[in-house]
Design a protein around this nucleic acid. Structure first.
Length: 429
RNA sequence: GUGGCUGUAGCUCAAUUGGUUAGAGCACCGGUCUGUGGCACCGGGGGUUGCGGGUUCAAUUCCCGUCAGCCACCCCA
């Protein structure tokens, strides 16, 4: 029998659980600040929920099995289908736009790598019912504020932004056919990982004219809208998309996150899914996978069988973000901390120790004491390593069965004072 | 799913061309120390050298398989 957790699954020891809680608390805090409401759904869903959106190929990447009722079920690999179902079922009754978030544990049956396990927690934030680009700006600002909340800066993390519709217009402008588009998207996606010459050859092999490929890469290298416009020589067909993106960047400036954001048309994300502005957050040093990815998916709710409604959202996993925080020394260490440790110099006083501990606990304090007889020095040592703020010391000769006094020692500065038994229970922490 | 690299204590690492009982630091537990913590000194527990097989008088070391981790591909929550 193997003693280890399944590959890609994690045991959360207290330190790791504290780290997970730290990240998830930051998620909740920022989502709350933006007025988003938390929801959740089942971790186990009908398999069709995912095949309807992504096709049968996805089954190979899921934890799938048949339940005892003969239903084909899957552990949820993503939250969006569940979200779409829940929103779709009550769309008419919900206040619009819907602003919801969730922090589900998700599962994928894939070979694990750094930053990519078979199980992770993911912040999901979605907006439904608003097509204005202001919603896109609000969404990205929220993601960026999570970075701020955990101590990262614009020099650590950058948001890369693209627009599916603008890319579409660009490809049309270059007369790139429908069949060639997947090839082009794949090449864009690999721009920062493979030499440009290799990618160019792949595209020309795929039937694109060399001068088209050159102009395409030239255009995609633009770092901002003005640069792009110049490189395209002022193409009218894209004015609408330019205006839209320009307003997007302006609104991001109003929200105070402009310095985090840059145009990058090589951002691709899921092809079948997104219909408008897409973005991803990544570490500027390029050490890790994308921290977060998302965008506008206006057609998805209709595809999943619900009512059509404009929608957008992002997912941010705990694994990459935690790795980044640890590497930047921004992950807080678990600090054990209790209010009181109760000690004594006589093991016969254990009932008194437990009586005092019980009273203090009923007053709402966190209290610990030695469960076995130990020298006083040992108990003090244990108190210090448990992070006790104060130690209540019951001394045989002073305590007198509760009628006498106890010594209250402050472990931070070593100061002591003598208190009556009945005073002990009215001391502020 | 395909290919490459790596597996020694909870962690970081030692161990002669293959050679006795696999060591050290940190961490953990205890002693010096029955009226007082952090320090120091001393001691203790903890290993099927990932697992299985092979070669050899002898394997942590060499070979094969397998499992796991890391990296790349695929795919992107």
């Amino acid at each position: 029998m193997s003693r280890a957790a399944l590959p890609g699954f994690r045991d959360f020891y207290p330190q790791e659980l504290a780290e997970r809680a730290y990240v998830m608390n930051a998620w909740r805090e920022v989502a709350r600040r933006y007025g988003f409401l938390e929801y959740d759904g089942p971790p186990l869903e009908p398999l069709e929920l995912y095949t309807a959106k992504s096709g049968d190929e996805i089954v190979g990447q899921l934890y799938v099995f048949e339940d005892k009722g003969g239903r084909k079920v899957a552990l949820r690999p993503e939250m969006t289908p569940t979200f779409a179902r829940m929103v779709g079922a009550r769309l008419n009754a919900l206040r619009k736009p819907v602003r919801w978030f969730s922090t589900p544990q998700l599962f994928r049956y894939e070979r694990q790598q750094k930053g990519r396990l078979r199980e992770h927690f993911q912040l999901n934030v979605d907006i439904v019912g608003e097509s204005d680009v202001a919603a896109d700006a609000e969404l990205l600002a929220l993601a960026i504020d999570v970075m701020r909340e955990v101590g990262l800066t614009a020099s650590d993390v950058r948001a890369r932004v693209s627009d599916r519709r603008l890319i579409g217009a660009l490809l049309a402008h270059f007369d790139i056919s429908e069949e060639q588009q997947p090839l082009v998207y794949a090449a864009l996606d690999k721009l920062d990982r493979e030499p440009r010459s290799v990618l160019e050859k792949r595209l020309t092999d795929g039937g694109l004219a060399p001068h088209t490929v050159g102009s395409l890469f030239e255009a995609v290298a633009a770092k901002n809208l003005d640069e792009l416009r110049v490189r395209l020589g002022g193409v009218r067909a894209m004015d609408e998309h330019f205006d839209n993106l320009r307003r997007y960047f302006e609104l991001l400036g109003s929200l105070g996150v402009a310095e985090w954001v840059q145009l990058d048309l090589s951002v691709v994300r899921g092809l079948a899914y997104y219909t408008g502005i897409v973005f991803e957050l990544f570490d500027t040093a390029g050490e890790f996978r994308a921290i977060c990815g998302g965008g506008r998916y206006d057609d998805l709710l209709a595809t999943l069988g619900g009512t059509a409604a404009p929608a957008l959202g992002f997912g941010m996993g705990d694994v990459v973000l935690s790795e980044l925080l640890r590497s930047r020394k921004l992950m807080p260490a678990l600090q054990p901390a209790i209010d009181y440790w109760v000690a004594s110099d006589d093991e016969a006083l254990l009932p008194d120790v437990m009586f005092v501990a019980g009273r203090l606990r009923r007053h709402g304090h966190s209290v610990e004491y030695s469960l076995k007889a130990q020298q006083l020095a040992r108990q003090l040592k244990a108190a210090a390593s448990a992070g006790a703020a104060q130690v209540v010391i019951l001394l045989r000769d002073q305590w007198s069965g509760g009628a006498g006094t106890a010594t209250l020692k402050n472990l931070a500065d070593g100061s002591e004072r003598v208190v009556r038994g009945d005073e002990l229970f009215n001391i502020p922490v």
